[in-house]
C-alpha cells in the first residue's frame, strides 16, 4: 500500500500538480492558501515539502533567481509517481468512506 497522506500533505501535493512547471515554494503556498481559504505559515509548507521529498513523493531542483528575490534561486517541485499513487489512494479512501451516504449529511450535529 502506498503512503498514507494527511490533509495538508494532500493540499500541498495537489498544489504542485495544479501548478505544474511553476510549482515553487511561494506559488505552492499561495495555491494552498487559496484552496484551504486560510493564511498558512510559509514554514508549514516548507516543512511539508521537505517531508514529502524525504518520503520520495516529490523531487525538487533549483531554478534561477529574479530581481525581486535578490537573485536567490527558486526551488521547483514535481510529484513523483509514488506521490501520484499516494494521492490516488487518498482519494479512493475518502470515496470509500463516503460510499452509500449523500452529501451534505443531514441530521443533528
Amino acid at each position: 500500500m502506498a503512503e498514507i497522506l494527511g490533509t495538508f500533505e494532500q493540499a500541498v501535493l495537489l498544489g504542485i500538480v495544479r501548478l505544474a512547471d511553476d510549482a515553487y515554494g511561494r506559488a505552492i503556498l499561495q495555491e494552498v492558501e487559496m484552496r484551504l481559504k486560510r493564511e498558512i505559515a510559509p514554514g508549514a509548507v516548507q516543512a511539508t515539502l521537505d517531508r514529502l521529498e524525504n518520503k520520495g513523493l516529490v523531487r525538487s531542483q533549483l531554478g534561477s533567481g529574479t530581481p525581486i528575490r535578490a537573485g536567490r534561486p527558486r526551488r521547483y517541485y514535481r510529484v513523483e509517481s509514488s506521490g501520484v499513487r499516494a494521492l490516488n489512494d487518498a482519494r479512493k479512501t475518502v470515496e470509500h468512506l463516503w460510499r452509500g451516504l449523500s452529501w451534505p449529511l443531514k441530521g443533528h450535529a
Binding site: 515553487y24 515554494g25 511561494r26 503556498l29 510559509p42 516548507q46 533549483l62 533567481g65 529574479t66 525581486i68 528575490r69 535578490a70 536567490r72 534561486p73 527558486r74 526551488r75
Partner: peptide, 8 residues
C-alpha cells in the same frame, strides 16, 4: 530558496 520565497 526559502529566504528568496519570503523576500519575494
Amino acid at each position: 530558496n526559502v529566504s528568496g520565497d519570503l523576500l519575494e
